[in-house]
Simulated scan of single mutants.
Amino acid sequence: MYNSVSEKDWVEAAHPVSQNVRSDIAGAGCDKPYFEPLIPEERPDIDSPYFVYFGRIHEDKGCKTLIEYFKHFKQKSSNKVKLVLIGKNFMNEVDTSDDIIYTGFISDQKKSFYLQNSIGLIIPSPYESLSMVTLEAMIEGKPVLVNGYCDMLKKHIELSHAGYAYFNKEEFCDSLNKLFTMTEKEKAIMSKNGIAYIEANYNWKVIIDKYKYVIENITKP
């Protein structure tokens, strides 16, 4: 039982198996969370459009490159888009500015607010095995921009059609521009794609049914 298509391909390329060996993609379930709405006094004070990153603020997670790429994006454009970094800082320095906001660790309620009101999620990590934050963004109908060198993340995008993958600084900037300038119709299509992908592949009922089938048939030839 694999987390993703990429994981299955990687394992079976290293350890070829017989066609008779049963396998499936299971991963983990992702339900749309519900939180009580924040009262006005608790809402983050941000009045500009923004992209968001969730997770450890760490160079190994691609955060140093993310900041570098985003600064390049801002140098090329005159828009008011910002980048919000949410998570514990593990880097010596976080390059904050008027365009890059670091919140530190915040409640799930505030994290949900930031995601729901963002343009989309950015995942710069080159190493992921499933990426629950990607699934969480898609179930909320938000597009995701991912590091194309992470095959698993790239596969999520290819299968869902709910975002973009980038391989260099210029592709990163082009993708941000595409997401920022999407029409309402394009946003609705991408949102629908992401939700449909999660419901078809990472809904808890779908995953539990897969495991039930495996357990019930494990002794059958």
Rank of each mutant, 00 (worst) to 15 (best):
V214E: 06
K80E: 14
E7H: 10
K169W: 05
G148K: 09
D24K: 11
I195K: 14
G55N: 09
A28G: 08
Y166H: 06
A28E: 07
I123M: 10
H156L: 01
L145E: 00
W204D: 10
K61F: 10
I157Y: 03
I86A: 06
R56K: 14
D174N: 15
G120V: 01
A188Y: 05
A165E: 07
K32E: 09
S131C: 15
K155S: 12
V133D: 02
Y34G: 06
F70H: 07
L159T: 00
P33A: 10
L130W: 06
N177L: 15
V52M: 05
K142V: 01
I122S: 00
L176V: 05
I86R: 04
D45W: 03
S191F: 03
T65R: 14
K80I: 02
E140R: 14
T183R: 09
P37V: 08
Y197E: 03
K178A: 04
K76D: 11
A188Q: 11
L135T: 01
N168A: 11
V133F: 06
Q109C: 02
K205N: 15
N147S: 10
M1F: 12
Y2V: 00
I46T: 08
A14K: 14
M91S: 09
T219M: 09
A26S: 12
H72C: 05
I86Y: 05
L83S: 08
M132W: 04
N92V: 06
G87A: 09
L115D: 01
F70W: 04
I122F: 00
V94S: 07
K88T: 12
F51V: 05
